[in-house]
Structure formats: C-alpha cells, structure tokens
Design a binder for these strands. Structure first.
Lengths: 201, 201
DNA sequence: CGGATGACCGACCGATCTGGTCGGGAGACG
DNA sequence: CGTCTCCCGACCAGATCGGTCGGTCATCCG
C-alpha cells in the first residue's frame, strides 16, 4: 500500500468531509442531497459516490471525522489545571478549529443550538462532550452562557464558511475569543451576576 | 367587510407567517417545501394553499411581514438622539422583537450571516436596513462587531424557536442585550480597540 | 328549515428530483 | 499492449415537488 498515495487520498477525503459537514449542519441529513455535496466539492454525483459507497456511508464518515476533531480539541486542554487559563486555552483551541474546519464545528454546534431545528439525527452526544471542555453542563442554569458562546462560535464558523477572505480571519479570531471568554467569565458591569463559572471535575 | 373576522384572520395568517419565516430562514426558499410549512402550522398542504394561492405568494407575504416588523423597530428608535442610549434602545427593541417573532428575526438575520449559505434569494436589503439602527455599516471594518451582535441575536432567535419554555426568555433577554451592547460599545479589557462605534447620520 | 359561504382535507396530477447503478473515457504505470 | 484508478454522462425506479380537484364540515343568513 502506497504511503504517499493514501496520504494524498486521505487529504482529498478530508476536504470532502469538511464541506459535506457544512451542508449537513445547515440543512440536516435528509434535506441535503448527494448532488448538493457533489456540487460543493466539485465532483459529479457518481464521482462522489466513488469515494463513499453510499450517502449513509458519507454521513458516517463525516460524523467520525467530526468526532476525531472534537477529541483532538478535548485532549489539547484536558491536562491543564482548571481555571481561567484553561478556559482561555479551550476557547482558543476551539476557535482555531472553527477557522480550520468551519464545517465540522458547525456540525458539532448544530444539534446543541438547534440550528437545523428538525432534530433530524442523533448526534447530540458529541456536541455535549465538546462543550464540557468549557466546564459547561447543559442541564444546569449556565445555559445562558451557552447562548453567547454558541452564538459567537456559530457566527464565526458561518462567516468563515461564507467568505474565505483569508485576511480577516485573524481579526475574527480575536473578537470571537474575547466574546467567548466574556460569556464564560464571572460578572462584569451590565452582565451576568458574579457567580463563579461552574467547572466540574 | 367584517372587522372582527378580518382581524382574526390576520392574526391566524401572522402566526403562519412567523413559522414559515423560520423555515425559510433555516433552509432557504427552494429547500423548504409547502408540506414543511403546512406541517409546522398544523395544516394540510391544501389547507395552507387555501390561505395563500401559491408558494411564491406565501414567500412574498412572509417578506412583506418581515419588512413591516423591521420598519416598526426602525421607527421605534429613529427619533432618539445618537449615542449610547440609542444603542441600548435599538438593541432592546430588536431583542424584544426577536422574542416575539423569532422566525421573522431569523429570516432578517439569515442573509447577513449567510446562515443559509446558498445566497438563494435577494432579501439582503432589508437586513442591512435593520442593522443600520445600530449605526453599523456593513461595508466598514465594524463587521467584526457584527459577528458578535448577529451571533448573539441569532442564537437567541434560534433558542426561542427551539424551546418555547416561557420562563427562561426573560433571562435570555438580559444576557443577549448585554452581549450586544458589549459588542457595540467602545473598547474594554481584552476586547476591541477603543475606537468609537461608528454612528452615521 | 334550506341554502350559501368559507375553512379545510384526502386524493391525485404531471413534473422534477432522489439515491444509486452501469458502461465507458482519460491518464498513469508497467 | 493491458490494467488500474479516478471520474463522468446517462439512466433507472421510486420519492417528492408545487398545485388542483371534489368533497366534508361548521357557521351564518333568511
């Protein structure tokens, strides 16, 4: 088996997966046609189905890839001590991933923020895991912070997807990191009451 | 012509328009079927097409209603003097509308934030007008602030659409208002450079 | 009471689109 | 030359599309 060849192929497939994830995140599984994905990646429908044997297989590959990306972010901050520094590290890591793989992040965020609204597929588990990096437990009252974090993150992913004007991403990165940290942090003037952000073991 | 009757009918139609707007905002025009809207409003397809003669007519009615709502918000803050107070009034007005008509606001925000991603329809003009209430000109460099405002607002509309748990909306309102004001305001620690927010005549 | 009206539905229409298959062309490799 | 991989156009059967039709209710008028 060729090393360089399979590596190149994996790179091609990852590009497909990222764009496919963006479409699945936006429209859900059933409302996204194979033709849509094929057009997005610049292939014919038959050409896309040459890489993945079926639409379901493509979707499973997208989910697996999203899980990979999510776990990578989790590992990146898991060994750091709890506190403000870990929050910043987690935020920056997630923001960087959102810039590199906007489609994947949009897909991970979609079930939590109900962007699709259909509850079409059962992929809520992994997004919960990703949000645990922030010390956010969805069943608690810190869902309000979730509103702001997810909002900023989703907007970043969406904007990165829409306009790939490379020059502006660094600016966006700075602002989104600031917004997320503000949302996570304890009270500031005109903001949340000064209760400490809940960080779990 | 019956006064009470037409008033009731208009109320029913507005309920339809709000839910239809949410679907159009999420999936775009072509990807939203008449059956989808009919299911969302609890009617059969034929029953829905009894209220609106065609899918295009339904969409135009949705757009007209959205324009109404947008202009109402604009008028509500147009006569106030420029400055921080007007910003707050504009934010609170828009947030209140987002709570009352989440579908409409999601539709107005969709073209600006490219939530649909397809550039499916030409409805960008009215969202620009709505954002002018914040003194935000999309062609300027304050698009970064736009990221945060739109993110918070979109998340609010989406969450309001998803879970109509009435008790939490007031909490969300407070947080979203705070986030939008922070995004609009001059520099704070770890945030945007202290340049004044651009407010035009 | 009969009759008219409007809201609404189930069934159905032709047209389009769906996921998926098949045969073959283009180019690289040997 | 043959073979292999990558990819495409054409095509299939079935689902879905927007829209129409006849008809059933409940309500209101006289």
């Amino acid at each position: 088996m060729g090393d360089v060849l399979s590596a190149f192929r994996r790179q091609v497939d990852e590009g497909i997966l990222d764009r496919a994830a963006a479409l699945f995140a936006r429209r859900g599984f059933t409302k996204t046609s194979v033709q849509d994905v094929a057009d997005a990646v610049g292939l014919s429908k038959a050409g896309l189905l040459h890489h993945f044997p079926s639409k379901d297989a493509l979707y499973e590959a997208v989910l697996a890839h999203a899980e990979d990306v999510g776990e990578r972010v989790l590992r990146q901050v898991a060994d750091q001590p709890l506190g403000r520094d870990r929050d910043r590290a987690a935020v920056e890591a997630l923001v960087d991933v959102a810039l590199a793989h906007p489609g994947i992040v949009a897909l991970m965020l979609a079930p939590a923020s109900q962007l699709g609204g259909d509850a079409d597929e059962p992929r809520a588990a992994q997004s919960e895991a990703a949000l645990h990096a922030f010390g956010v437990t969805p069943d608690q009252a810190d869902q309000e912070r979730l509103v702001r974090v997810i909002g900023a993150l989703a907007a970043l992913a969406v904007l990165t997807l829409a306009a790939h004007s490379e020059g502006k991403t660094t600016v966006w990165r700075r602002h989104v990191v600031a917004t997320c940290l503000d949302a996570l942090g304890p009270g500031r003037p005109g903001s949340v009451p000064p209760e400490h952000p809940s960080v779990e073991a």
